[in-house]
């Protein structure tokens, strides 16, 4: 039941990220989706390595979001010049 609940939330966040028109406001939805995927990875197999996989997935997905957001910031800076 826990996996189904998390899967539903993840799918909803992913669909909302696609449907939102403002690129900048897609980021929070993608963040919620990443939380769901991390939880699903951790719950898939009860083994320390799945915990390490969840850690790696989450930290590097956050790094990606960080990179995308700072690129958007830089693009806006160039546009406003």
């Amino acid at each position: 039941m826990i996996v189904e609940l998390i899967g539903l939330i993840t799918a909803y966040s992913a669909v909302m990220a696609i449907l939102t028109e403002d690129t900048r406001r897609k980021m929070p939805y993608i963040n919620a989706m990443n939380f769901g995927v991390t939880a699903l990875i951790a719950l898939s197999v009860k083994h320390p390595l799945s915990g390490v996989a969840a850690l790696a997935y989450f930290i590097f997905s956050t790094m990606e979001s960080n990179a995308i957001a700072s690129t958007i910031d830089r693009l806006k800076e160039v546009e406003s010049r």
């Binding site: 963040n31 939380f35 991390t38 951790a42 320390p48 915990g51 850690l55 930290i59 960080n66 957001a69």
Partner: peptide, 21 residues
């Protein structure tokens, strides 16, 4: 919260690793 692992990430990862280990 989106751009850097903060307390929300800490809460999720701590519970995930507590479960896994």
């Amino acid at each position: 919260i989106v751009c850097s692992p903060d307390a929300s990430a800490g809460t999720l990862l701590a519970s995930a690793c507590y479960y896994a280990f």
